[in-house]
């Protein structure tokens, strides 16, 4: 039994094929798995390990390094409130406190209905809209308390499903390109380019020598 759906397994195989060393596909595959399942399950990591020819522990070791890869279940909407310095100056810490009150959970927790997980996040590069928050990595800001309340309301009532897909779905645009040019062809091209360059430089030097 495969963890990936047939469609995603096809995508996984495309991703594995993009790199000279297939382990490079590890993070893209983790995102793909999260997109399918909402979080990165053990079952998914075992399958990713198989696809990459490494141990599941290696997949987990890498995945656990990154904040966006969640090996535990998270809510449908992962709400990240930024409290880093620019947002903090704009009231980020207070916004986080408000978010915690509104959702009824401390940062790091998930609401009982599985709708929301609240996170305190580091700078998300949206500082001109401080204080800001991200929901499943879609940005909102600046957010006064009332803006936040409206955002939660919109999410609860599915009014933002166009812009904010469920957690795990990161990019909705998949690679659409011809098969990779075989590296042997590229390497031959480069050898030829380098040879030609050398020849040009030699000719230039000769010219320079002649002029002297």
């Amino acid at each position: 039994m495969s963890f990936f759906t047939p469609e995603n397994l096809g995508k996984a195989q495309v991703l594995v094929g993009l790199y000279p060393d297939k382990r490079s596909a590890l993070i893209p595959l983790c995102h793909l798995a999260q997109g399918q399942h909402g979080h990165l399950s053990n079952e998914a990591m075992v399958e990713i390990a198989e696809l990459l020819g490494i141990q599941p522990a290696e997949v987990m070791g890498t995945a656990s390094f990154y904040d966006m890869l969640h090996t535990e279940e998270v809510g449908k909407y992962l709400v990240g409130v930024c409290t880093n310095v620019a947002c903090m100056l704009g009231g980020g810490l207070e916004l986080l406190e408000h978010a915690s009150d509104v959702l009824g959970i401390p940062p790091g927790a998930t609401t009982d209905d599985g709708m929301f997980t609240l996170e305190e996040v580091e700078c998300v590069a949206h500082c001109d809209k401080a204080p800001c928050a991200q929901v499943n990595y879609r940005y909102f800001g600046p957010l006064a308390d009332s803006d936040f309340d409206r955002l939660v309301d919109d999410l609860r009532s599915d009014r933002l499903s166009e812009t904010v897909p469920p957690h795990g779905v990161l990019s909705r645009v998949f690679r659409d390109a011809p098969a990779m040019v075989p590296l042997e062809i590229i390497h031959q091209e480069r050898r030829d380019m380098d040879e030609a360059k050398k020849a040009r430089l030699a000719a230039q030097n000769q010219d320079a020598g002649g002029k002297q």
């Binding site: 993070i27 990154y66 904040d67 966006m68 990019s171 690679r175 390109a177 011809p178 091209e189």
Partner: peptide, 24 residues
């Protein structure tokens, strides 16, 4: 503009977008 023999120039290259996953 990318791939095999770009614009007929004889130069080929592939371009891959790699997502990070949250680590400064």
């Amino acid at each position: 503009a990318v791939g095999r023999n770009i614009f007929g120039s004889g130069f080929s290259i592939d371009l891959v977008l790699q997502p990070g996953a949250g680590a400064y």
